[in-house]
Amino acid sequence: MERKEWPLWEVFVRSRNGLDHKHCGSVHAPDAKLALQVARDVYTRRQEGVSIWVVQADHIVASDPDAKPELFDPAEDKIYRHPTFYQLPDEVNHM
């Protein structure tokens, strides 16, 4: 018999209002409705969430780990982007 696996979905859970949805794992499910149902059973058995997003895993576009240097290194020497770069007179340094 031909083996047909249910597609993979990535699961994001908002643990409470005021916080972002955060990636917490993945599930296999045949469709979006069941993916939500399965994600609820697998990842929120102890009130870990108030909202769930599921997205089919192959719809996620990810950066290439090999491209890490050219993507992220340029930020390394731009310390002037941080407030602590600027030393102000003591009287106003809490600005």
Partner: peptide
Amino acid sequence: AWVREAALEHE
């Protein structure tokens, strides 16, 4: 097996 197959077919 039939449940897994039926769910895929439904979708």
